[in-house]
Simulated scan of single mutants.
Amino acid sequence: MSLYANWSYPTAIRLGAGRISEIGEACAAAGMKKPLLVTDKGLAALPITAATLDLMEAAGLGRAMFSKVDPNPTEQNVEAGVKAYRDGGHDGVIAFGGGSGLDLGKVVAFMAGQSRPLWDFEDIGDWWTRADADAIAPIVAVPTTAGTGSEVGRASVITNSQTHEKKIIFHPKILPAVVICDPELTVGMPRSITAGTGMDAFAHCLEAYCSPHYHPMSQGIALEGLRLVKEYLPRAYADGNDIEARGQMMSAAAMGATAFQKGLGAIHALSHPIGAVHHTHHGTTNAVVMQQVLKFNRPAIEGRLARAAAYLGIEGGFDGFYDFVGELNRQLGIPASLGELGIRDPDIDALVASALNDPSTGGNPIEMNAENTTALLRACL
Rank of each mutant, 00 (worst) to 15 (best):
K34G: 13
L37E: 12
L37N: 09
G42E: 05
L46E: 05
P47G: 11
G60E: 10
T74N: 02
A80Q: 07
A80E: 06
K83E: 03
G88D: 04
D91G: 08
V93Q: 01
L102W: 03
G105T: 11
V107K: 02
V107A: 02
A109W: 09
M111W: 15
A112C: 15
L118V: 01
D123Q: 13
G125F: 14
R130W: 15
R130I: 15
D132G: 08
V142S: 03
R154I: 08
R154E: 03
I174G: 04
L175R: 06
L175K: 10
A177P: 09
E184D: 14
R191Y: 12
T194Y: 00
F202K: 00
Y209S: 06
Y214A: 14
I221Q: 02
E231W: 05
Y232F: 11
L233I: 04
P234S: 04
D242P: 15
M249D: 09
S251D: 10
A257R: 02
K262L: 06
G263W: 05
L270C: 02
H272F: 12
T280L: 10
T284D: 07
T285L: 07
N286S: 13
A287Y: 08
Q292Y: 06
I301T: 11
R304H: 09
G326M: 06
I334R: 04
S337T: 12
G342H: 05
I343P: 15
D349L: 06
S360K: 00
